[in-house]
Simulated assay, not measured.
Amino acid sequence: MASRIYTTTGDDGTTGLFHGGRVSKADAVVDAYGAVDELTAALGVARAGCDDADLATTILDLQRELFVVGADLATHPERRDRLEAGTSRVDAGMVTRLERLIDAELEVRPLRPVFLVPGSTPTEAALDLARTVARRAERLVVGAAERGAFVSDDVRRYLNRLSDLLFVLARRAAGGADEPASRH
């Protein structure tokens, strides 16, 4: 018999947590890790259209790290001791790595002091869209924490830095294309 993708266990409106337990699919933390999943897919769109091999590798690395973010968020709060740093739990080193990537990009390509209108190249536009999804994921993570869900400080910091990194990577993806400012 072929394997099935459906289990029917979620038909009651609940979803399973990593390391056991179930919560409502409408739970604030489920919204948060759902946005992280959406971000992973949005980065896939950026990577699929990217003709810069080094940038595509960076995007793939970020997608893989987002699985760590998702696992961290989706873990039963009482079983977090089972998580492994960098594999299923976000740690400070992951945040530091993003900061180093941001700093390296800004050395090569300093930011213009204006708001930019996305859409100069397909990859730039996809990265800017991913940045907005990252910001939404960050807002949902903060909201989940404010509603009493456990959210690690490293997850919050990671998503905040990631959106900054995606902004500077979008500028890289624009290359020499004209990026119009928000005002004439």
Rank of each mutant, 00 (worst) to 15 (best):
M1S: 12
A42R: 06
V45W: 09
D27H: 14
V168Q: 12
D72S: 11
S152L: 12
R109A: 06
R136I: 00
E65V: 05
R89G: 05
G44M: 11
R82K: 14
V155A: 02
A35D: 15
G21F: 04
A126M: 05
V90H: 00
T40V: 11
R89A: 15
R64M: 10
D61F: 06
L159I: 11
L106M: 06
Y33K: 03
M94C: 05
V133E: 05
L60Q: 04
I102F: 00
S3Y: 11
M1R: 07
E105T: 04
G49L: 08
L162N: 02
G86M: 09
D12C: 02
T7W: 01
T8V: 08
R157T: 10
R161P: 01
G49T: 05
T14V: 14
L106E: 13
A173V: 08
A35W: 01
C50P: 12
G49W: 08
S120G: 07
E65F: 07
A145N: 03
F150Y: 10
A130D: 07
E38I: 14
A46K: 14
H76A: 15
R161F: 01
V117I: 15
R183N: 10
D103C: 08
A26L: 12
A2C: 00
V141F: 03
L129W: 09
R171S: 05
P110Y: 02
R4F: 13
L62W: 02
D154K: 00
G49C: 08
A74K: 05
E146R: 14
L17H: 14
D128W: 06
D61K: 09
C50T: 04
I5M: 06
R156T: 08
L106Q: 07
P77F: 01
T58H: 02
F167K: 02
V155K: 02
L17R: 15
